[in-house]
Write a protein that binds this DNA or RNA. Structure first.
Lengths: 239, 239
DNA sequence: CGACTGGTTGATCTCCATCAATCCCTGTGG
DNA sequence: CCACAGGGATTGATGGAGATCAACCAGTCG
């Protein structure tokens, strides 16, 4: 099951408070913004859709995927979240989570309750701007993803995903040497609207062309950004 | 060119202030939240990508599409916006518009500058919650659109779009009798990641099956929601 | 009246889904 | 320690949904 820890401890001993959401806000020993940290083992669920919202989450380590189950039980992939990224904004207005969140590997998240956040933010205009900007950036990111993936070939989709994902990884605090970096090809396929077979074929093709290199444990090692970015834009002209 | 009108007039004589964003906030004759209204003729641009942000916009009448031009000049469709809907949140964090906004027909929008909005909102916690909820709802809407359209057939895509669009139309203040309701099939195709030919074929098929009826001027008249919604979920089982 | 934009319809081709078999790796239990 | 099971990845063969190319029509605007 999920393991929980009091925030006061957690924030106090946090390895990377400067990366925290509004560190200035969060780092107040008397009134910690983060109410608790949650430790998830690979595969565990952080929250289910339609559950009452408990707050938004900041990823401290690991990786989370969100997905949505329709009435027929069919699963649709939402997004992937990496350390330093915020999760759950889209559920705030409905007061219930609109999707499921599952740990892709052992993961640590910090929970921030919205009432507490809003209360804190209302006292300081600068923090209000910070919150609005964070939400705006989330929106821009989702819209940009839509732009990027619509009307593209399978090759382009995989290339775009690899570049975006690895750039986000490099921005994050993740210890690249010790973790299995990529989601499963099945999850990638689901996210991109492809099949696992197509993703597999594309990945092996990329390896043969030297665009991507992996370690034996399927960890992503190196990308040829220049060539991949050429692939991303040159739609059908590429043969 | 764009025609502008002082807000004090506009808000004062607005036909539908109760539909306005935070009407309680907006309707203050001394300090109007809406700084001006802009009248756009069909085809006119409300803003270009990379322009300095002037605020967010509330649609009063008409319709807007957003699109994005990449470095090669290829155009990718963003979204459609209908009366009562808010436009521009995703640009707030970057201080420049991240996309282009163009009027699909004669359109009237109200401009709300962010600094003014934030200032007003900071004085009243309830308004702060309202703003956060509006942004959260925008995010949820974009994510839901992603869920809805990924991994679906052309038939499903068009069905989903028609149902969603007409439901949003019915929520809006639009005068259904006097306007051409649908975007062009080219824009629909671009939004859905299809070609115009495929959309055309699907639409005529829907008409033959009696799922959709049009007037002679291509205005959408009537949808068979029940049957369309069956189409939306029954992926490949439908023949 | 042309010119142009948007819509319709048909023929062909291609990319990717589908189905199937096999392999590899990890974890589990006798 | 080995056998086995199960999930993920790989590779091949086949078929189909939708893109592409092309021709044509209808309404609209200068």
């Amino acid at each position: 099951m999920k393991t929980k820890r009091q925030a006061s401890d957690s924030c106090h001993y946090c390895q990377a408070p400067q990366q925290c959401f509004g560190a200035e806000i969060a780092l107040d020993d008397k009134n910690p913004l983060v109410q608790e940290t949650v430790l998830l083992k690979k595969g565990e669920i952080l929250y289910h859709q339609q559950e009452k919202i408990q707050g938004i989450y900041l990823l401290k380590s690991g990786a989370i995927k969100t997905y949505w189950l329709n009435e027929q039980g069919r699963q649709t992939m939402g997004s992937f979240y990496l350390p330093g990224e915020l999760l759950g904004f889209s559920s705030v207005s409905s007061h219930t989570y609109v999707e499921n969140a599952q740990a892709l590997r052992d993961t640590e998240v910090c929970r921030i309750a919205m009432p507490l956040l809003l209360n804190r933010v209302s006292k300081e205009p600068a923090y209000q701007t910070l919150l609005v900007n964070l939400m705006s950036a989330s929106l821009a990111r989702v819209e940009k993803a839509r732009y990027a993936y619509i009307d593209t070939s399978a090759t382009q989709k995989v290339a775009i995903f690899l570049v975006d994902y690895s750039q986000r990884l490099s921005k994050s605090l993740i210890d690249a040497a010790s973790v299995n970096l990529l989601p499963t090809q099945q999850d990638m396929a689901s996210y991109l609207g492809l099949t696992a077979e197509t993703v597999s074929r594309t990945m092996t093709q990329f390896q043969r062309q030297g665009l991507v290199q992996f370690s034996q444990a399927k960890q992503m090692l190196k990308l040829d950004y220049a060539k991949l970015q050429t692939l991303m834009v040159n739609a059908c002209s590429e043969r």
